[in-house]
Design a protein around this nucleic acid. Structure first.
Length: 519
RNA sequence: CGGGGCGUAGCGCAGCCCGGUAGCGCACCUGCUUUGGGAGCAGGGGGUCGCUGGUUCGAAUCCAGUCGCCCCGACCA
C-alpha cells in the first residue's frame, strides 16, 4: 500500500467484488469512485474542487497539461493535449459551419487605425482593449496598426470592393484565427489576452435573411455545446448594455458550470446595416437601386474549453465527453515480473488495440517505469472517458476490467468482443454526461417574480434565476444591484413572460431574463 | 485602475525577524527489488535566492526602487 493513500482505502479495496458482464447483462456493479477520488487527492496534484473551485480550475488546466502561462501577461501556451481537445471541438464546429453553406478564408492580423475607426459605436466599445503596433523594424509607422480584436472592420473594408450586385449575395464566410484584446483580469482559457476562435461574417439582401442567419448559427453553437461537449445551454438575447459594440442585437448561449455560475459560450450578432453603411458597402438590387446589405457575425472561442472543464470536472480532475476526447479509451496493463504472464497481458493489450473500431481513439499505456496506480491517477486527471485494465486475475477468466471516468462505474467484461462493444459504451457515456449536466441545470434553476425572490434564490448557492423583465437599463441596474456579482445573462428565447410584472419596476414585462453570476 | 498577498531548483515550501556564502518534500537521473489505486532501498544531478541600486569586510536575509504573478473590487468571448 502506498504511503500517502488514505487508510480507509484498504478495507474498501478488500471488499472489491465485481460481477462479470455475462451474456450482455451487467449485475452487481460496485462503484469504487470515491475510493479513487481519495487516492487522487492524496496525490496532492490538484486543489479540492469543493473547497477551492478557482484553484482547482487552474490546477486542472496546468496539471492535466492543457495549457500553461506564457511570459507575457494574459497569454497562454496551449499544450498538445489541450490543443487536441480544441482541435476536436473546432473540427466539429467547422463541419457545421460548412454544412450550413459557409466557406473559410483568412484576413490579416493587422488592421489600419483608419479602418477600425469608421463605425463609431464599435471603435468606442473596443478602444480599451486594442493592442497597437506603432513601429516596423526601427521605423515609426505613419499610421498605427491594430492587432485585430475582431475583424468586422477589415472584412467590411474589403467586401466594399467585392460586393456590387444582388447576385453577389449572400456572402457566407468564416475564418479561424487568433485575436488579441487587452484584458485586466485574465484566466486560462476563460479570458486571455490572445485567444483562438472562429468568426463568421455574412452579408444578406434582406433584414429577415440576416436575422435567420443569426438564429441558424446560434443553433450550431447550441448543437456543439449540447451534442459534443455535453453542456446544456440557454439561448437568448443580450441586453443593450451587454450586446456587441455596433450590433443591433446579440444572441448568446449560456451554459451552467458545476458551481452554478454561467459561462457565455458563444455569441451571434445581427449587425443590420450599421457597418455596411459606415464602410460604404453598396450593391444594385433587382430594380437597379443602390442598397446596403444586412450583415451578421458570430464567434466561438477557446473559452469553450474552459467551460468544458468547469462543467464536467470533478475532484480527480478533468472529465471529457467521449466525442471530443483526444484519447477515448486508455488501456493499462497490470504488469507482472513473471515473464509468461507479462507476455499474455501484453498480447491482450495488443488485441484490444487491434480490435477496436478505427474511429475509437485508444491508447495502451505501456510505460514500464510507472506503476498502475499512478497511471490510473494520471489518466483520470486527464479525463479519459474509459479505462481498461488488463491483469492476470481477470485474464484467467478471459476478462478485463472496465471503468467509466465520469461516474466511476466499474465492470468486468470478456476480452472477446470487447472492441465492438466500446463504441456503444462511449455513446452511452456521452449521453449520460449530458443528462447529468442537464440534471444540474434543472436542479439549480429557479423562477422568480420579484427582486426579493431573486435575493432569496441566491442565499444558498449561485443559481440560474429566470423572471419577467422589461429590458430597461434602470431595471437591469436594479437587478444587478440586488445580488452580489449578478448579471443578466440574456433574455430567454424559450420563455415568454405573458405580460407578468417586471421583477424590478412591476410594469408589464415582455421578456424572461436569465439572471446569474457569470465568468 | 484601487485594496491585499507572493517572488528561494521543474513544482510546493523553509531559511529572512537576529547578515557569515542555501536547505526540505515531490519530481528528475542510475542500479536493484517491485507492479490489481499515486512503490522501497541505495547512489546522483540540478539554484546568478525576480531584477536594479544602496548599506556592509560580507546580503536570500537590512534599506530604496523596479518588474512580474496571484487573490478581491470597476470593464469583457
Amino acid at each position: 500500500m502506498a504511503a500517502g493513500v488514505s487508510p480507509w482505502l484498504r478495507p474498501r479495496r478488500r471488499n472489491r467484488r465485481l460481477i462479470v458482464w455475462s451474456a450482455g447483462r451487467r449485475e452487481d456493479v460496485r462503484c469504487l469512485y470515491s475510493a479513487a477520488m481519495a487516492g487522487a487527492r492524496s496525490g496532492k496534484q490538484i486543489a479540492s474542487k469543493s473547497e477551492d473551485f478557482d484553484r482547482w480550475y487552474v490546477d486542472v488546466v496546468r496539471r492535466a497539461e492543457l495549457a500553461d502561462y506564457a511570459p507575457v501577461k494574459g497569454c497562454m501556451v496551449i499544450r498538445p493535449y489541450g490543443y487536441a481537445l480544441w482541435e476536436r471541438t473546432r473540427d466539429a464546429l467547422d463541419a457545421m459551419i460548412k454544412r450550413t453553406g459557409h466557406e473559410n478564408m483568412y484576413f490579416p492580423l493587422l488592421i489600419p487605425e483608419s479602418y477600425l475607426a469608421k463605425e463609431a459605436e464599435h471603435v468606442e466599445g473596443f478602444a480599451p482593449e486594442v493592442f497597437w503596433v506603432t513601429q516596423g523594424g526601427t521605423r515609426q509607422l505613419e499610421e498605427r496598426l491594430a492587432i485585430r480584436p475582431t475583424s468586422e472592420t477589415i472584412i467590411c473594408s474589403m467586401y466594399a470592393d467585392w460586393i456590387h450586385s444582388w447576385r453577389d449575395l449572400p456572402v457566407l464566410i468564416n475564418q479561424w484565427c487568433n485575436v488579441a484584446r487587452w484584458e485586466k483580469r485574465t484566466r486560462l482559457f476563460l479570458r486571455t489576452a490572445e485567444f483562438l476562435w472562429q468568426e463568421g461574417h455574412t452579408f444578406h439582401a434582406t433584414d429577415e435573411e440576416a436575422a435567420a442567419e443569426v438564429d441558424t448559427m446560434l443553433d450550431c453553437y447550441r448543437e456543439l455545446a449540447e451534442e459534443w461537449l455535453a453542456m446544456p445551454v440557454i439561448k437568448g438575447r443580450k441586453t443593450e448594455s451587454e450586446k456587441f459594440a455596433g450590433a443591433r442585437y446579440t444572441l448568446s448561449i449560456e451554459a451552467m458550470m458545476s458551481d452554478g455560475w454561467a459561462l457565455q459560450a458563444g455569441t451571434s450578432h445581427h449587425l443590420a446595416q450599421n457597418f455596411t453603411t459606415a464602410y460604404g458597402i453598396r450593391y444594385s438590387d433587382r430594380d437597379n437601386a443602390l442598397q446596403h446589405p444586412f450583415q451578421t457575425s458570430w464567434g466561438l472561442s477557446t473559452r469553450i474549453i474552459g467551460g468544458l472543464i468547469m462543467a464536467h470536472g470533478d475532484e480527480a480532475g478533468l472529465v471529457i465527453p467521449p466525442r471530443v476526447a483526444p484519447i477515448q479509451v486508455v488501456v493499462v496493463p497490470i504488469t507482472r515480473s513473471d515473464d509468461d504472464e507479462a507476455a499474455r497481458i501484453d498480447e491482450a493489450c495488443s488485441r484490444i488495440e487491434r480490435e477496436v473500431p478505427a474511429d475509437v481513439r485508444v491508447r495502451v499505456d505501456r510505460r514500464e517505469a510507472m506503476r498502475p496506480g499512478e497511471k490510473f491517477a494520471h489518466w483520470e486527471l486527464r479525463g479519459v472517458p474509459v479505462r481498461i485494465t488488463v491483469g492476470a486475475k481477470d485474464l484467467v477468466e478471459g476478462n478485463v476490467t472496465l471503468v467509466r471516468r465520469f461516474d466511476g462505474e466499474q465492470t468486468v467484461v470478456p476480452l472477446e468482443g470487447l472492441g465492438a462493444r466500446l463504441q456503444s459504451l462511449l455513446d452511452e457515456v456521452q449521453l449520460a454526461m449530458r443528462a447529468r449536466a442537464q440534471g444540474l441545470l434543472d436542479q439549480r434553476s429557479v423562477d422568480v417574480q420579484t427582486l426579493d425572490d431573486l435575493v432569496a434564490a441566491f442565499t444558498e448557492q449561485p443559481v440560474f434565476a429566470s423572471g419577467p423583465f422589461c429590458n430597461r437599463a434602470e431595471c437591469e441596474q436594479a437587478v444587478k444591484a440586488s445580488v452580489h456579482a449578478l448579471t443578466i445573462r440574456n433574455l430567454r428565447s424559450d420563455r415568454s413572460s405573458d405580460g407578468a410584472p417586471c421583477v424590478a419596476c412591476r410594469e408589464p414585462a415582455e421578456f424572461v431574463a436569465l439572471m446569474a453570476r457569470a465568468y
